[in-house]
Design a protein around this nucleic acid. Structure first.
Lengths: 290, 290
DNA sequence: ATAGTATAATGCAGAAAACGCATTAATTAT
DNA sequence: ATAATTAATGCGTTTTCTGCATTATACTAT
């Protein structure tokens, strides 16, 4: 039993005329006649009462006309949707990201995605565990934004942009770009930063930074959550170091002082990803970049 | 695109193994491989990602597995129902009947129908216009019960049973079978009967009856509705003549006095009726008969 | 009644498709 | 390296499908 056969049946059920119907569906009258016959045989159900002159639906035929018609419409709908998925116009991606891009890059990116792939469903996760390689290869995420460059034979990466890291201080704090001549002046400041023993990339970046400048910060609160850190700085509990992106959070009573140190953002995905949706999303990220 | 192809796809989508699936659906592995391929080509959608070793569903494939599965189940359901209709196990009949069979024959008949064809829908009409032939040929009714024999080349009839007609009197009325020696004794009785000028069969039967016995009844109320007549008799407003069947209405304070006159019940239907449901219903009526 | 017309079914022969066997090619396991 | 697994493919055969031409039948007009 062919979908086309059913469609032809529906056409005939409307026309009730073999010749006209055959013409309409671009087959010969004999073919149509035999198609309907074979449909009837296969189902073991008489669909039409026909003498040499008239064609009319049986009760079963009426019933099937109604229900098949509905089902065929459903099917067409389903096939259109499947086509969309196949073409990556719709579907599902799981994205993991560092908190710092919450305020500028990520919303822009999601906006672009939504404009171009309105049927796409996105799952966002802000992983505490930063093992991007494993997240990707275990299919727990499809696209991983990361601050560190990942070198792995089965992962493709692309650097999207760099941005300065900044000292984050309360508005009236003595410190500004010009006043800061020597980092040793920060000796007595109370820092609110990620625990330096952490294995996250940002922690190791901080570790390097303080090493380079030869002093150890006085850490009074440890936190990995930028939003939390900003609020503590705003309440003048201490100062911190964060990527410039956090400025966009627009927390009041906070100033960002750019340092001569940059941090990168990479996008990572499984090499040879066959999923068209994911590939398409990766293409769009290139449009947004910085 | 074949229904079978879709079913095979669904099987493969579960098994994710060509050889096992092919065995399960009783075709060769090569055929299955090509069927899936042709499905993919026809839809223009990749359903499986497969290398020489592994088979897995694409996103579009997952989507179609889910939705096709639902649709195929619906279709199977629809086909079962259509089969029922085709076999006359289900469907629709319109039945017209004279009020007199409301109390005994019709409920029995409907009970039998319901027991044997539980999915059958029945429309009952008690026509005031008694033109059964026209009702049938205009498809306003499928089965017409009638009191008169219908002679019409395109209508088949069957006599189901005969029953006496009765004088219907209040309980304490002087009249009974033995006391009634001569119909002229009814000269002074007040009758509640169908207008004798009416063209209904029962009216003409009454006309004949009174002619035969050579007197004209004193009619105080004209009515064609047995139920109404019975209630009026019960209130001792007059007496009437009705088929014995009305006794089953069990209206209180009413006695039936059988006369030596019978009335028939016929069932009528369109000759060569192709509708299996109707034909089946006609068969069942024969089981109930009397 | 009779001839004419409309229309679904059917015989036939050629075209296309489907099928299974055997084989190939690629991958994994030992 | 070798064997085993497994999806794809070439090929010949069988089956099915298709359209043309024709037939059979019922309705229409005269």
């Amino acid at each position: 039993m062919t979908i086309q056969q059913i469609k032809n049946f529906l056409e005939l059920a409307n026309e009730l005329h073999f010749w006209k119907t055959a013409e309409k569906v671009f087959i010969s009258q004999s073919t149509l006649s035999r198609q309907i016959r074979s449909l009837e045989d296969e189902m073991g159900i008489q669909l039409f009462e026909r003498d040499k002159r008239n064609v009319k639906l049986t009760d079963a035929g009426k019933f099937l006309k109604e229900h098949w018609s509905a089902t065929i419409n459903e099917l067409d709908q389903i096939h259109r949707q499947a086509k969309k998925i196949d073409e990556g116009m719709s579907g599902f991606v799981s994205i993991s990201y560092p908190g710092s891009i919450t305020f500028r890059f990520l919303p822009r990116f999601l906006e672009t995605l939504n404009a171009n792939l309105p049927d796409l469903k996105v799952e966002l996760t802000e992983p505490t565990d930063e093992n991007h390689e494993k997240l990707l290869s275990d299919y727990r995420t499809d696209i991983a934004f990361s601050r560190d460059k990942i070198s792995n034979a089965s992962i493709d990466s692309l650097k999207l942009f760099s941005e300065p890291i900044c000292l984050v201080v309360p508005y009236n704090h003595w410190l500004n770009k010009k006043s800061l001549r020597d980092f040793n002046e920060l000796q007595d400041e109370k820092f609110i930063i990620s625990g330096l023993h952490q294995k996250t990339f940002f922690a190791s970046l901080l570790r390097n930074f303080f090493n380079k400048h030869g002093f150890e910060p006085k850490t009074i609160i440890e936190s990995d959550f930028g939003g939390m850190i900003l609020n503590l700085v705003s309440k003048e509990i201490g100062i911190s170091i964060l990527p410039l992106s956090f400025k966009l959070a627009k927390v009041p009573n906070v100033r960002f002082v750019e340092l001569d140190e940059e941090i990168d953002l990479y996008i990572n995905w499984r090499k040879n990803e066959p999923n068209k949706t994911i590939k398409k999303v990766i293409e769009y990220v290139k449009l947004v970049k910085k």
